[in-house]
Amino acid sequence: MNTFKKEVQQGLEANPKTLPSKYFYDKKGDALFVEIMNMAEYYLTRSELDIFKNKTEELIQALDLNKGSYFELIELGAGDGTKTKELLKKLVHENYNFDYFPIDISANALALLEQDLKTEIADLSVKTQQGDYFEVLDTLKANKNPKIILFLGSNIGNLTDELATKFIYKLGTNLNPGDKLLLGVDLIKAKEIVGPAYNDSKGITAAFNINLLERINKQLEANFNLNQFEHQPEYNEDEGIAKSFITSTTKQTVEIKAIGKSFQFKAGEKIHTEISRKYNDKLIQKIIADTDFSLARKIMDSKAYFADYILNRT
């Protein structure tokens, strides 16, 4: 709670105002995001699932997996494992020698995933790891077993390019030469396709964004009038970055009792909540240029909306 309070205060005192996107995910936010993933307009999950479902053999070949050699398949932020299950089923069915290590900050998410996998893929060896990605990887590095890291869902796109480079570089320090990273990213494409994914016709993404203010109201005793703020997404195709804002529709003052401060908003003033970076080959090469990874392969879905890049740890 103290971190939440501190980061909300820092964000609202900044100019321009910001709020961290990680705080979207309370119980209501989690449920809304499940709705988002099932929306007709939200192509991202379906696109990567298309790759894992219909190009499973191509993924296995690109990862250079060998049935005779043991490896660790490690997923960062495994969630419910919908996409990964397609790969896991094939690997188990074809008798590959591996353990699956899902890493997640949420113990609850891991427990649900483990139970689910016991039912769906009974012969799979699952070793759940709860905690920070890098702390867990650091403990696994010492065993020197070959590792395949999965970082899916274009989660890297929530970072600026500079932070993405730092993240991938840090991943490399926790791996050994010959290990691989499967990086799932959303590709740069037309505004007509990207825009509705962040501003759907039913207003689910708007509710998801505005729920952040509702959470601050509940947990930090604030008095945000939710009717006087609106969801405002923006996407610049040339830049390739989708941005989410919460905009004040009027001049107003908001009090946050837990912080002991009031915050002034002008009419039309924006709170920046999230970025969702889109990529192409040139950007990926730029991001990995100063890391210990080289680009080995790119596998796209049937519509070429999404790509899974295979990176080798050099």
Results as ranks from 00 to 15, higher is better:
residue 249 T to S: 09
residue 53 K to T: 13
residue 12 L to Q: 05
residue 203 G to T: 07
residue 52 F to R: 04
residue 30 D to Q: 05
residue 166 K to C: 09
residue 66 N to F: 00
residue 127 K to N: 06
residue 23 Y to W: 01
residue 149 I to K: 08
residue 107 A to R: 01
residue 156 I to V: 13
residue 301 D to L: 03
residue 214 E to L: 09
residue 142 A to C: 04
residue 2 N to I: 08
residue 12 L to F: 07
residue 95 N to M: 04
residue 229 F to G: 11
residue 309 Y to E: 11
residue 238 D to I: 14
residue 77 G to R: 00
residue 243 K to T: 13
residue 171 L to Y: 11
residue 129 Q to G: 02
residue 139 T to Y: 07
residue 204 I to A: 06
residue 152 L to A: 01
residue 126 V to H: 06
residue 233 P to M: 00
residue 180 K to T: 09
residue 276 S to R: 12
residue 154 S to K: 13
residue 174 N to I: 00
residue 87 L to Q: 04
residue 122 A to H: 13
residue 264 Q to W: 05
residue 56 T to G: 04
residue 50 D to L: 06
residue 88 L to E: 00
residue 88 L to W: 00
residue 39 M to A: 13
residue 167 F to I: 10
residue 147 K to G: 05
residue 111 A to L: 07
residue 212 L to H: 04
residue 128 T to P: 06
residue 222 A to M: 03
residue 58 E to W: 01
residue 244 S to Y: 01
residue 92 V to T: 12
residue 82 T to F: 07
residue 2 N to C: 08
residue 314 T to S: 15
residue 32 L to W: 12
residue 97 N to A: 10
residue 69 S to Q: 15
residue 114 E to L: 02
residue 149 I to P: 04
residue 101 F to P: 09
residue 244 S to A: 11
residue 200 D to W: 11
residue 197 A to K: 08
residue 313 R to M: 14
residue 131 G to N: 00
residue 314 T to V: 15
residue 234 E to L: 13
residue 58 E to G: 03
residue 213 L to W: 07
residue 72 E to P: 05
residue 47 S to T: 03
residue 9 Q to M: 12
residue 181 L to Y: 01
residue 58 E to L: 08
residue 311 L to Y: 01
residue 103 I to M: 01
residue 71 F to M: 07
residue 8 V to T: 04
residue 127 K to L: 03
